[in-house]
Design a protein around this nucleic acid. Structure first.
Length: 346
DNA sequence: AATTCGGGGCG
DNA sequence: CGCCCAGAATT
């Protein structure tokens, strides 16, 4: 297939030098693939370096505490990736003698490893003939073959997987998989790709019909919902504050935060003090309440916009244990909390 | 099949 | 402001 030949050739001439391209050790490939899920190379790279440095082997990662893994992951988002990463490391050490599965089918059983990641590891580390389909592959194939099927539909997932599997270079699956992804990231970019210098342009159906900007086609997702977060930043005279671990379902699972009061609407200074004085951490106590951020901070996640206020509570003593403010940076926290901690300069 | 998980960057 | 990113798990 001419497509396969051109993409592979382009890759050998244009690929970036990246640390996970210097190895076929499944631990490092797995680590890089998890970090790079829904994450651009530029954003994930420093996290990869940090993990390799702190956890050079799967045994080191398995022996770590979850809090420390989450702390190193802090700021990267999609924290279930970090929790599953740790769970899988422990599984491989405890149940598999520290040896990674060596094929697609068994890799797929690992927590946090889906079709894409299993295909990537199987092809890169073990030369298995399994095509990867990530955001880059969707874009390249939908344009070159002018496919209008929504990429975020089950029909699209199957269609593109089958097509990629037909196109893969069976003699060099590792090369082809990385080539088509790199091609999508560097040449066949989402916006304003330079099609004039593209080695595939003569055969690209979307380019020849001037439909590059229309593909890939995606079903629109629902608009983000608004939530109102009020964080209670306790400060006692003995320099303590309170952090709570987020349990259960929802965002930021197992990360820490200041005691949170979620309200249906934005709170103003006067009424909020009256509203919280029966809170179990404040009941029958005297305290001073100061709103830290005059303008509400809007923290945007994929599906939620968090309208956030930090309320400073000066109080003599805490009626729970709390933590020393000097220790606050040891805890994994969401980036909005981390930004506050830095700005407030605890 | 649809929704839920983060955060950064870009036009 | 909307869209995208070397997707997976849950509902």
């Amino acid at each position: 297939m001419i497509f396969t030949k051109i993409v592979t050739r382009w890759y050998s001439n244009n690929k970036r030098i990246l640390p996970w391209r210097q190895t076929k050790d499944p631990y490092y490939i797995w680590l890089s693939e998890i970090i790079l899920q829904q994450t651009q190379v530029k954003q994930g790279l420093p996290y990869y370096e940090a993990f390799v440095s702190k956890y050079p082997s799967v045994f080191d990662l398995a022996n770590a505490k979850e809090n420390d893994v989450l702390k190193l992951w802090q700021g990267l988002g999609y924290y279930s990736r970090a929790r599953n990463l740790h769970t899988t490391a422990k599984h491989i050490v405890s149940d598999l003698n520290g040896v990674f599965p060596n094929n697609y089918k068994d890799l797929l059983k690992l927590k946090g490893v889906g079709d894409y990641t299993a295909s990537a590891i199987a092809s890169i580390c073990f030369n298995e003939n399994t095509a990867v389909v990530d955001g880059n592959v969707y874009r390249v194939l939908s344009r070159y073959f002018e496919i209008d099927t929504p990429i975020n539909s089950s029909k699209g997932a199957k269609e593109f997987k089958d097509l990629a599997q037909k196109l893969i270079d069976k003699k060099k699956p590792a090369e082809f998989n990385q080539a088509i992804m790199e091609f999508g990231a560097v040449q066949c970019r989402p916006k304003n790709p330079d099609c004039n210098i593209c080695p595939l342009n003569s055969g690209c159906m979307a380019f020849n019909k001037n439909r590059i900007h229309e593909l890939p086609f995606k079903i629109k997702s629902a608009k983000a919902k608004k939530r109102h977060f009020n964080f209670l930043v306790f400060i006692s005279k003995d320099q303590k504050t309170i952090l709570e671990k987020r349990e259960g379902k929802g965002i930021w699972q197992n990360l820490y935060q200041f005691p949170l009061i979620e309200t249906t609407r934005e709170q103003s200074n006067g009424s909020f003090k009256n509203y919280i004085k029966s809170h179990h951490l404040l009941k029958n106590r005297s305290f001073e309440l100061v709103l830290y951020n005059k303008d509400v901070i809007i923290h945007k996640l994929s599906h939620q916009h968090l309208y956030t206020k930090f309320w400073i509570i000066n109080i003599d003593t805490l009626n729970v244990n709390g933590i020393l403010v000097d220790e606050i940076r040891d805890f994994p926290v969401p980036i909005i909390i981390s930004n506050f901690i830095d700005a407030f300069n605890f």
